[in-house]
């Protein structure tokens, strides 16, 4: 993982399906991890939901495509989509370049408190990636 994001990562929660989540009040920003971006190789297309869509935890909210693979995106928590990162549709390379900053995917309005069931902290997630890359 990239060092310049090391501080930020401590604020994130991760899903086993490689999405990350950052809570600011009752808004959750969701993206996919650097590990996921690397293993998908060159991303060519990203499909994200329209604002207003209601998502359950674990529900598919979009997908990312590389030349030779396609992967579903799963929402780590329940909520209502308030914003999608439409810039990614025009330039999918941004997601690869900056998965934790400009490469965020969606923002959800969530009801507090958010259930953390099944989510990992940065250390736990790092260990998961280590097992998957072997």
């Amino acid at each position: 993982m990239k060092d310049d994001h090391a501080m930020d990562l401590q604020l994130l929660l991760f899903a086993k399906t490689h999405e990350w989540l950052r809570l600011d009040g009752d808004v959750a920003t969701i993206g996919i991890s650097d590990f996921a971006v690397q293993s998908l190789t060159d991303l060519v297309y990203i499909e994200l939901p329209q604002p207003g869509r209601v998502l359950k935890a674990g529900e598919v909210f979009g997908e990312v495509e590389s030349v030779k693979a396609a992967s579903d995106l799963y929402s780590p928590v329940a909520g209502t989509v308030v914003e999608s990162n439409t810039k990614l549709a025009e330039d999918p390379a941004q997601l690869s370049a900056s998965p934790y900053e400009t490469g965020w995917l969606i923002r959800l309005k969530v009801s507090l408190p958010v259930s953390r069931a099944g989510l990992l902290d940065a250390e736990e997630y790092k260990r998961l990636c280590a097992t998957e890359s072997h």
Binding site: V44, Y45, E65, S66, V67, K68, A69, A70
Partner: peptide, 12 residues
């Protein structure tokens, strides 16, 4: 755009 097709996306 082969990611639409059966040899990559299979049942989807």
């Amino acid at each position: 755009l082969q990611a639409r097709e059966q040899h990559i996306r299979r049942e989807k």
